[in-house]
């Protein structure tokens, strides 16, 4: 049994476990399908649950049950042994340390999605009229492929600081020195550091926004553009009065999708500053409270808050989609 669970640091053993894991699942699915296929005239519910049962069970045990447990834990003390009512939420909304975290999170959700979407939109519009479209889009899209940890390291290097008088190794400080300024410790000074960390996120997400928006810009019928052109609309007027209204539904989807990603992103802040220097956000504080401070109750409350903040974003999204359905 232990052999099946732990591979230690033997690579061969690990790969073997991987093959066993995959084979086990193939066998399990095979058995399910075999059983479903057995009866001559099976009732529909039997076949239906044969196909969907595994997924439903996994979702129930892996998603629904733990989420309910977390909600319950958010009303309990730090060891989840006693009921404390709304104390954890009260702490999150009154103690300065957590107010800072909530404030940062609000800043992230308000700024990052809008800037990323706008950057993606502007670039999609620009590149639509240019040569080398494929290569240019590819380069902007590339950060989507790499991990947020990798992206954070890339940018941490850009923000690297060396004292004045020594050769700078960080690109941003080098620019400041070239322009005659003093090198800065960018990641230490609030609130600038939060914005500089956001740059990493925007750098990644703009490519996502560009790809989706570029596709919808291309889907605008040519005759609409022709008609506008004959009416004398051009340049920025074309952008504001034709392009934006035509791709509005896609804009809303991109904006809200990025907003939801923003809320859940924890890798970037963790890699850049580990939440120090007043940069922490809810998604990271949830982790720190549980695994560093050992406060299960507060951590659960923060996780629930994360879920609660997502809901208005989704409602906005659904409403906007309904509106655009009606217009059509």
């Amino acid at each position: 049994m232990d052999w099946l669970l732990h591979a230690g640091d033997d690579p061969g053993h690990k790969f073997l476990l991987m093959l066993i894991g995959i084979a086990l699942f193939v066998a399990l699915m095979g058995i399910i399908l075999f059983v479903v296929d057995r009866p001559r005239n099976p009732p529909r519910w039997f076949v239906g649950f044969g196909f969907t049962g595994a997924a439903l069970l996994l979702l129930l045990l892996g998603l629904v049950y733990p989420a309910v447990r977390t909600i319950a834990n958010s009303f309990m003390n730090r060891n989840s042994t006693g009921f404390v009512g709304l104390d954890n939420y009260a702490r999150a909304f009154t103690e300065p340390q957590f107010l800072l975290v909530l404030g940062n999170t609000a800043l992230w959700v308000l700024v990052a999605p809008i800037v990323a979407t706008f950057a993606g939109l502007a670039y999609a519009y620009l590149v639509d009229k240019s040569r080398f479209e494929a290569v240019a889009k590819g380069l902007v899209f590339l950060p989507m492929a790499i991990s947020m940890v990798g992206a954070s390291i890339i940018w941490k290097f850009v923000y690297e600081f060396k004292p004045a008088g020594v050769d700078q190794t960080g690109l941003l400080n080098q620019f400041i020195v070239w322009l005659g300024g003093e090198p800065q410790q960018f990641l230490l000074s609030r609130p600038l550091n939060t914005f500089l960390i956001m740059v990493v996120f925007i750098w990644i997400q703009a490519g996502f926004a560009m790809t989706l928006l570029s596709a919808s810009i291309k889907a605008i019928p040519d005759d609409i553009i022709e008609a506008a052109r004959l009416d004398g609309v051009s340049g920025l007027g074309m952008f504001w009065r034709i392009t934006i209204p035509s791709i509005r539904p896609a804009l809303v989807v991109v904006l809200t999708t990025i907003a939801m990603t923003t809320l859940k992103t924890f890798d970037i802040v963790r890699t850049m500053t580990a939440g120090q220097y007043g940069t922490s956000i809810v998604a990271l504080e949830f982790y720190d409270q549980r695994f560093r401070q050992g406060d299960a109750g507060l951590s659960a409350a923060l996780a629930v808050l994360l879920f609660v903040i997502v809901i208005p974003v989704i409602i906005y999204n659904v409403r906007q989609q309904r509106l655009s359905e009606e217009v059509r």
Partner: peptide, 8 residues
């Protein structure tokens, strides 16, 4: 959000 499921 997966954060809500991880600890339990």
């Amino acid at each position: 959000p997966i954060q809500i499921t991880l600890v339990p």
